[in-house]
């Protein structure tokens, strides 16, 4: 499932500021320096080479500063990639004492290094536009917007707690992002989590993305209830009494990605039913009556 990038808000801001121009005049079309080079330096270097810290007397937070170089001299020789200290420092082995960024901070990606190299090669221009670099790689977006898996459960916290208590199950947030959804957890008292409980959870079912039902007394009747849990991504039905017939009830779960049917009586008819699920990536069938132990088998059907 989704994992969010851990980049800080601050960086996004700086990035926007760079886009807005820095010391380079903001043209209608962004310059390659502003759109590609500055964001790379900003992401990796400006903490130590910026307005606050100026290690080696070097600032990398604007074109002018970059070209002014360090105490020891210039670090960019336009047109000469190999001869530019800037390029040398970012291409050293990670274990080299002179490698930049220093202090074991993550090194530049191959794409980022390529951006710097292309730019120096083309003369380290402050004005050349993005279009002048057709072969330049795109930048990884600074922040990937989290994909909500379910609506936020926050307002329903009291109701959720009451149902947990009533049914002896746990409804656990997957992370502190409330749209990451809840896990239905029954491992402490699997015998209590039966078909009636699943039916009774209907009022909060849309928050549940992962239903852990291994070793519960759930049957095909319970699958009917699950069939309306629209945001389910994963269901574990290991060692339950569900059958192929019951799986038909899940046909509306368009987000379902993983279903575990280990040690159940599900057979090939059930596998056929599962094939129709649009989002399904994996079904586990070890110890079932199906002739495959895993679906899809190695390659996609």
């Amino acid at each position: 499932m989704r994992s969010s990038l851990e980049l800080k808000e601050r960086r996004t801001w700086r990035w926007l500021l760079c886009l807005a121009g820095g010391s380079v005049a903001a043209a209608a079309e962004p310059t390659f320096y502003a759109a590609r080079v500055a964001p790379v330096l900003d992401r990796h270097c400006v903490v130590c080479h910026g307005p606050e810290k100026k290690k080696a007397g070097l600032r990398l937070d604007s074109f002018d500063h970059l070209m002014a170089g360090a105490e020891s001299g210039s670090i960019v020789k336009p047109g000469d990639v190999k001869g530019s200290e800037l390029h040398r420092r970012i291409t050293l082995p990670a274990t080299d004492e002179e490698v930049m960024p220093s202090d074991g901070k993550p090194s530049l990606s191959a794409d980022e290094i390529k951006i710097i190299a292309l730019w120096i090669e083309a003369g380290a221009s402050p004005t050349k536009s993005l279009a002048d670099f057709p072969t330049a790689p795109a930048l990884r977006p600074a922040r990937v917007a989290p994909v909500p898996l379910a609506p936020s459960w926050r307002e329903k916290a009291a109701e959720i707690a009451a149902l947990e208590k009533k049914f002896g199950v746990k409804l656990v947030p997957r992370s502190q992002v409330p749209t990451d959804g809840l896990v239905l957890r029954s491992a402490s008292a699997p015998q209590r989590c039966n078909d009636q409980v699943l039916a009774g959870l209907a009022p909060v079912a849309r928050f549940i993305v992962d239903a852990e039902l291994a070793r519960t007394p759930v049957t095909d009747a319970g699958l009917k209830a699950l069939g309306s849990w629209e945001n389910l991504r994963a269901i574990d039905l290991t060692r339950t009494k569900v059958t192929s017939a019951g799986l038909a009830a899940l046909s509306g779960l368009k987000h379902l990605e993983v279903i575990n049917l280990t040690d159940t009586a599900v057979d090939d008819a059930g596998v056929t039913t599962l094939r129709a699920l649009p989002g399904l990536k994996r079904a586990w069938l070890f110890g079932s009556k199906a002739t495959v132990t895993q679906y899809p088998v190695a390659t996609a059907p």
């Binding site: 499932m1 989704r2 994992s3 969010s4 851990e6 459960w153 926050r154 916290a157 959720i160 707690a161 746990k170 656990v172 947030p173 997957r174 992370s175 502190q176 992002v177 409330p178 990451d180």
Partner: peptide, 22 residues
């Protein structure tokens, strides 16, 4: 996580360690 005190915690400004879904 079990008790959904998460909202309260974030509101109090304490950095919670569960930024990422496991």
């Amino acid at each position: 996580l079990g008790n959904r005190a998460l909202g309260a915690d974030a509101a109090a400004g304490a950095p919670a360690p569960w930024k990422i879904a496991p």
